[in-house]
Structures are given as structure tokens and as C-alpha cells.
């Protein structure tokens, strides 16, 4: 599995004030469940993204706490009521304390 951890964000275009839009996120990550064994029969230690936080202009709008039952390359989507333009900041945290960040502008007409 690739160790290249890359977030992807999709925000719809042409948002009007008051629209409720779907924000789609995905981060490439093996999400090692801690249940699998390697070729020698030894357990591969758990290593998952356990948290995702989303803020709009610094204000939390969505938070996810994830368990090993999330699929590899965890995909999450949620909705957002768009009342103002700004910046969406996404943060993913994994079991090793790894921090992955992505930002996306939110343009509200």
C-alpha cells in the first residue's frame, strides 16, 4: 500500500448564499486495522486516521472520530449551509500523531 498520504477535497461550484452543499473528502491512507497479520504471522500494528476536523474561517463545522472499521483511503462526505465565503480547513490525525492538512476556498455568491 502506498505511503503517500494525500488529501482530496471536492466543493461544488457556483454556490449561492443559503445553499446547502455536499462537501466530499478523501485521504489516501492504508487504515491498517490492527487485525491483519504479516507473512510471519505477526500482527501488523494498528495505524489509522482516527480523527478528522473541518473548520470554516476557524469555526468548527464538522468532526469525525474514526475506528478501524473505516475502509482504507477513508472517504467522508457531509453537508454545509453556506452563508459566507471563506476558507475550509481540513485536518486528519493518525495513530502516530501524523497531521495532514488541506484547505479549500468557499466562494458564496
Amino acid at each position: 500500500m502506498s505511503t503517500d498520504i494525500k488529501p482530496r477535497i471536492r466543493v461544488p461550484q457556483g454556490i449561492k448564499r443559503g445553499d446547502v452543499v455536499e462537501i466530499k473528502t478523501l485521504i489516501t491512507h492504508p487504515m491498517e486495522s490492527g487485525q491483519r497479520k504479516d507473512a510471519d504471522g505477526k500482527l501488523i500494528p494498528r495505524m489509522i486516521i482516527n480523527r478528522m476536523n473541518v473548520t470554516l474561517n476557524g469555526k468548527p463545522v464538522f468532526e469525525a472520530r474514526l475506528e478501524p472499521a473505516m475502509s482504507a483511503n477513508p472517504y467522508l462526505s457531509f453537508f454545509l449551509k453556506c452563508t459566507q465565503s471563506g476558507t475550509l480547513d481540513f485536518t486528519w490525525i493518525d495513530d502516530n500523531g501524523g497531521l495532514y492538512k488541506a484547505s479549500h476556498p468557499l466562494t458564496v455568491a
Partner: peptide, 15 residues
């Protein structure tokens, strides 16, 4: 998942 009024719609999708 922690949501609030800012979400506008209480729907989440995952795998």
C-alpha cells in the same frame, strides 16, 4: 460524527 446547525442537512456518507 459531530454536527451542528452549520451543516444545514444531517447526512453523512462513508465506506
Amino acid at each position: 460524527f459531530m454536527l451542528g446547525p452549520d451543516n444545514g442537512k444531517a447526512e453523512v456518507q462513508l465506506r
